[in-house]
Computed example of a mutant assay.
Amino acid sequence: MSEKKPEEHRISAIPPFGLRMLPDLRRRVEEAAAENGRSLNAEIVNRLERSFLGNKLLAAAGGSEKERPPIENMYEVVKILYEVMDKAKELEDRGEYSPENMRKAVAEMPSLRHSLDKKP
């Protein structure tokens, strides 16, 4: 039997929010939504949630938005960042998110260990 969602989490209880965006941005978000099998709304919400998780990750690492590591391979950095954010979302969904748990999870990620082993 499925668990009932709290009233504030039901779709019917969430008031609509109008959003203006440039046509090119809308097209890119629609393409991403289709690729990810999500509605336009779900894609926007997912991307917003990830942006907030990014801030949590910076705080957990003891950094700030102003501190940026040197970037040599942007694709690799973005790929790893998405993996880390997925792990943070997974921990948060299970109610297990904490800076300590996040540090442990990140330390166990093979792609991150491989990248950290590389010397500049």
Rank of each mutant, 00 (worst) to 15 (best):
E7S: 01
L81V: 03
G62M: 06
L81H: 04
A33V: 00
F17V: 07
I11P: 00
N46W: 08
I71W: 04
V77E: 12
S64E: 14
D117E: 15
N41G: 14
L112A: 09
N73D: 15
E100F: 10
S51I: 04
R103I: 05
R38L: 14
V45R: 13
E92N: 12
V29N: 06
E35D: 15
R68L: 13
A33E: 12
M1W: 04
L116G: 07
R38T: 06
I44S: 06
M21E: 00
F52S: 05
A33K: 11
L53E: 02
N41D: 15
D86H: 07
H114L: 12
E96D: 14
P99W: 14
E65K: 00
S111A: 15
A13M: 04
D117K: 14
P16F: 11
I44E: 01
A34P: 09
E76T: 09
A105M: 06
S2K: 08
E83T: 00
S2H: 07
S111F: 09
I11V: 09
L81F: 03
A42P: 03
Y82V: 02
Y97F: 15
G62S: 05
H9C: 04
K119L: 13
D117A: 13
K104F: 02
K56S: 11
A34Q: 14
D24W: 10
S64F: 02
G95E: 10
L25M: 05
A60N: 01
R26L: 12
K87I: 13
L57E: 06
E72Q: 09
E72V: 10
E92I: 08
E7R: 05
S64W: 04
S39Q: 05
A33H: 12
Y75L: 14
M1N: 07
R28V: 00
R10Q: 11
E3G: 08
N41V: 03
G18M: 09
E49G: 06
R113Q: 13
K119T: 12
Y97L: 06
L19N: 11
P23K: 02
N73I: 00
P16L: 08
L19G: 11
P120L: 11
I14K: 14
N46D: 14
R103K: 15
A107W: 01
F52M: 01
R113E: 13
Y97K: 01
E67S: 05
R26Q: 11
G63Y: 03
D93Y: 09
A88F: 03
S98R: 03
M74G: 01
S12C: 06
L22G: 10
R68Y: 03
R47V: 00
G95K: 08
K87C: 07
F17M: 08
Y97A: 09
D24G: 02
D93R: 13
P6H: 04
E30N: 02
E92T: 10
R20W: 15
N36S: 12
M85I: 13
I80T: 10
R68M: 11
K79P: 03
P16N: 09
G62C: 03
K66N: 11
M21R: 01
E83N: 01
K5E: 01
K118R: 10
Y97I: 03
K5I: 00
K119S: 07
I71E: 11
K56V: 02
A60S: 12
L91F: 15
G37N: 13
R20A: 02
A33I: 06
H114C: 02
V45Q: 12
E83G: 08
D24P: 02
R27C: 01
E108P: 00
H114Y: 13
E76Q: 13
V106Y: 00
D93S: 12
